[in-house]
C-alpha cells in the first residue's frame, strides 16, 4: 500500500504522511467526542456490529443452557412433588369414601395396614399390624369398603393373621339379598368362590347379591360378599352349582378394617 503525492520526493512524502497523521490525531484528540463520537458510531456499525451480534447470541446460548439445566432440575423436583400429590389425592379419595363407610350397628371399625399377603396364585392369608393390644380377637370379621375380606385366624401381641375368603378354611354363612335364600360361601382353587348348600329350586338368578346372614356369629348380618355370576342346576344332584364373584379384589388389597364389637 503506497499513497503517492505528486510533486513530492520519497523523503518529503514520508514527512508529509507523518505530519498529516499527526495533525489528524491531534484534531481527534482536541475535538474530543465532538468528532470521534460520530466516527466511532460509523466504525462500530461496520466493524463491531457483527461481533456484538455473535456475542449477544453466545450470551443467549449460555443463558439458555443455564435455564435449561435449571428447568431440568425443577422438572425433576416437580415430578417428585406430583407423585406425592397424586398419592395424597388417592389417600384423600379413600378417606372421603371412608367418611360414608359406616360399620354395622354394635361394631366399630379398626383401620389396619397390611404388612404382607401370602398364598400361591391367589392370596389367601394376610398379616396386619393390629394385635391383642388393639382389642383384636380371633374370628373377628375383616372387611374392606367393598365387602367381606376374611376373618382373624390368629392374634399376636401387635400383629394378627387374617384368613381371606380365598382360604379354604374360611367359610361364611350367607344369604341372597333379594330372595333371602341361605347358603355357605366356600373357596377352592378348582372352582373358585362358590355358594354351597343351596337346594335346587331355590330362587337364585345370576346377578343376585350375596350378603352375610349373621348365622354363626362371626360376621354381622348384611355385609356384601359378592355377586352370583353363574348358576348351574345339575340333573341328579340336590344342590345348585353357583359361582360367586367376590366383592373384594384379593389381588389388590390396600386397606383392611377389623370389625370390633363395641363395649
Amino acid at each position: 500500500m503506497e499513497w503517492r503525492v505528486p510533486g513530492f520526493s520519497r523523503e518529503n512524502r514520508t514527512v508529509l504522511h507523518t505530519v498529516l497523521a499527526l495533525i489528524l490525531s491531534l484534531i481527534f484528540f482536541i475535538s474530543g467526542e465532538g468528532l470521534s463520537g460520530p466516527v466511532a458510531n460509523v466504525v462500530t456499525t461496520i466493524f463491531y456490529f457483527p461481533f456484538h451480534q455473535v456475542q449477544a447470541a453466545l450470551t443467549r446460548l449460555g443463558q439458555t443452557a443455564h435455564d435449561n439445566e435449571m428447568l431440568r432440575t425443577r422438572m425433576a423436583e416437580l415430578s417428585i412433588q406430583l407423585q406425592f400429590y397424586n398419592e395424597t389425592i388417592e389417600e384423600n379419595r379413600r378417606l372421603r369414601a371412608l367418611l360414608g363407610f359406616l360399620p354395622p350397628p354394635g361394631f366399630r371399625l379398626l383401620p389396619t395396614e397390611i404388612i404382607g399377603v401370602y398364598g400361591s396364585g391367589m392370596p389367601n392369608t394376610a398379616l396386619i399390624n393390629l394385635g391383642e393390644r388393639h382389642a383384636v380377637r380371633v374370628n373377628q370379621a375383616v372387611i374392606t369398603r367393598n365387602g367381606v375380606a376374611g376373618r382373624i385366624a390368629r392374634v399376636l401381641k401387635d400383629y394378627s393373621i387374617v384368613y381371606l375368603l380365598t382360604e379354604p378354611r374360611c367359610r361364611v354363612a350367607v344369604r341372597i339379598q333379594r330372595s333371602r335364600e341361605q347358603g355357605i360361601i366356600r373357596y377352592s382353587l378348582r372352582r373358585g368362590m362358590y355358594l354351597d348348600n343351596v337346594p335346587r329350586g331355590d330362587d337364585i338368578v345370576v346377578g343376585d347379591t350375596v350378603i352375610t346372614s349373621g348365622v354363626g356369629g362371626i360376621f354381622p348380618e348384611g355385609l356384601v360378599v359378592g355377586e352370583i355370576v353363574n348358576v348351574v342346576s345339575p340333573e341328579r344332584e340336590f344342590f345348585f352349582n353357583i359361582t360367586v364373584q367376590p366383592a373384594v379384589n384379593f389381588n389388590g388389597l390396600d386397606e383392611l378394617y377389623v370389625l370390633v364389637p363395641e363395649g
Partner: peptide, 26 residues
C-alpha cells in the same frame, strides 16, 4: 506509509467503544 496509516486506522477501530480516547489511540 502503510504502517503509519494502518496504525491510525487501528487506533480509530480500537478506540471506537471509547471515543474519548480515539485521538490518543490514533
Amino acid at each position: 506509509t502503510a504502517a503509519l496509516w494502518f496504525g491510525i486506522a487501528a487506533g480509530v477501530v480500537f478506540a471506537a467503544p471509547d471515543p474519548s480516547r480515539m485521538g490518543i489511540q490514533m
